[in-house]
Design a protein around this nucleic acid. Sequence first.
DNA 1: AATTGTGAATTCCTTCACAGCC
DNA 2: GGCTGTGAAGGAATTCACAATT
Lengths: 226, 226
Amino acid sequence: MSLKAERISELTVNRLSVYLRCLDELAAQGEATVSSQALAERFSLNSAQIRKDLAYFGEFGIRGLGYNIDLLRTHLTQILGLDAPRRVGVIGAGNLGTALANYDGFARSNFAVVSLFDTDPAKIGGVVSGQIPINDFANFAAVVSASSIDIAAIAVPARVAASVLDAVVEAGIKGVLNFAPIRLRAPAGVKIKHVDLLVSLESLSYFLARGASLAKLDDDTDPTSI
Amino acid sequence: MSLKAERISELTVNRLSVYLRCLDELAAQGEATVSSQALAERFSLNSAQIRKDLAYFGEFGIRGLGYNIDLLRTHLTQILGLDAPRRVGVIGAGNLGTALANYDGFARSNFAVVSLFDTDPAKIGGVVSGQIPINDFANFAAVVSASSIDIAAIAVPARVAASVLDAVVEAGIKGVLNFAPIRLRAPAGVKIKHVDLLVSLESLSYFLARGASLAKLDDDTDPTSI
DNA sequence: AATTGTGAATTCCTTCACAGCC
DNA sequence: GGCTGTGAAGGAATTCACAATT
């Protein structure tokens, strides 16, 4: 069955990432196998969903037994393209950009922030987190190829985000994480993921306003929120 | 029609937030009305989707003309519960927590970070961004009621996130923004939104791995990514 | 003439339920 | 007996298409 040509939904891919993290935990606890049912309980999810998600990519389980954790970790790592290191460039060396450069959660998953970029002469030439240089954004394309950057994180004010994206695309980057509160549109072949704190907060605000007035009990096993 | 008892999907609410921001821009540009078609083009979205999203809450448009921008802004602001200020407490005064406290995008939308919390004695008593105090997380519940905090942002390491959530819920907070890379489960009546950078990055990595090998052109008008 | 609001159609995602295998 | 993999059913979200309205 493995590797169907079928289009895999983004929701499925997001869940694979969640599963992988959970498997890492289970492995650290010394578990050897896990059933879809046991995994499902961890995230209030349906076990068939987990089996379906995994079955898009192959038959990784053993009937009657469940999934071998190490084997499944290897497969998911490979499916998610995490077997080779992913190199991230962060554009905007403000508070958020610096926080990203310092974030140690990335390393656990084979991501490394290799450079920051800014246009402020006062910042260019500096170093963050002891080793990550702040380069001139004017040299973005050159640094991208010299440092083999895979992924760009846009952490600049909304008003300049669109022109930053143009330069990022021009430099040949195919994967973009956008933190600016604006809906950037990606050209074909370029994938953008939006991390929009204002949308998340305003959406929370909505539920506070409704939840309070309607007293409607959210069961909120909420599959849409990633 | 207005205010149907119908359950509104989270996807709809997220889009309302995006619409509102776009209306703010249009208003700043001096526009007076906008059609669903014109709005839709801004986000590669279907115009019927926009009309449906809005129609859940009332009949705000005028046939033949479109939507009055100021009127629609007022309605969306009220629907999203943004007419009163929302007060945010940030738990974890590390890089991310500090970046959140410094983030000036919030103010534009009636959110204010009013306190940080930490357990590190070296940090407690400090001040961030000139005016935001770092309080002892042990006093969380007291500060929440003294400062009328509505929303908690969890910006602590994954291993302590679950116990932080317990304290947050205990203090009566109903809206939580979780930045820790772990799937926290909310009790009924509490809404959690996850901002999980590792999931976003790993999902990007998947599309890089697939996109490159299959050369399948993403059209990526991607409605799931918020 | 232009554009909304909305039933109907469609597409996408999730859950059910069970045959097949260990 | 227990658990996977999956076709079929069910449910949700999106898009179509058009009557209604200004």
